[in-house]
Amino acid sequence: TFELKGKVGKVVKIAEDHYLVEVEGDKWIAYSDEKLSLGDRVMVVDVDGLKLKVKRIP
Rank of each mutant, 00 (worst) to 15 (best):
Y31T: 13
L38K: 07
V21Y: 01
E16K: 08
G6H: 01
I29R: 12
K27T: 07
Y19S: 12
P58I: 04
E34H: 08
G49N: 12
G6R: 00
E3R: 01
L20Y: 05
S37Q: 12
V47C: 04
G9R: 00
R41M: 15
E24L: 03
R56L: 11
L20W: 14
D26H: 13
L52K: 01
G25R: 05
K5V: 15
V11M: 08
G49Q: 08
A15H: 06
V8I: 12
K5C: 15
L36W: 02
R56H: 11
G49C: 07
E3L: 02
I57A: 08
G49K: 08
I57N: 04
Y31C: 09
V21G: 01
V21L: 05
E34A: 06
V44E: 00
D40V: 06
F2D: 15
V47S: 02
V45P: 00
K7Q: 05
E16R: 11
V44I: 07
V54C: 03
D48C: 08
R41C: 10
L50C: 07
V54T: 04
D48T: 08
K10Y: 11
E16H: 11
Y31V: 11
E24Y: 02
K13E: 09
V8Q: 14
L20G: 06
V45G: 05
G25Y: 12
V47N: 02
D48M: 07
D46W: 03
K51N: 06
E3N: 02
K51V: 09
D40L: 06
K13R: 08
L38N: 11
A30R: 00
S32C: 05
A30S: 09
E24W: 01
V11N: 03
D17W: 09
L4M: 14
V23D: 01
K55Q: 15
V12D: 13
D33Q: 07
V11Y: 01
L36A: 06
E24C: 12
Y19R: 03
E16S: 13
P58Q: 06
V42G: 03
L20P: 01
G49M: 13
L4Y: 01
T1H: 15
V47M: 04
L38A: 10
M43N: 04
P58C: 06
G39F: 06
D26Q: 12
Y19N: 14
D48N: 12
F2W: 03
R41T: 13
T1D: 15
K13Y: 06
S32E: 04
W28K: 02
A30E: 00
L38F: 08
V12C: 06
A15Y: 11
L50D: 07
T1V: 15
V44N: 01
S32L: 11
G25E: 14
D40A: 09
T1I: 15
W28G: 02
K10W: 09
E22T: 13
E22K: 05
V44C: 04
S37P: 06
D40H: 05
M43A: 04
S37L: 13
V8C: 13
V21W: 02
K35V: 10
I57G: 05
G6K: 00
K51W: 06
V12K: 06
H18E: 04
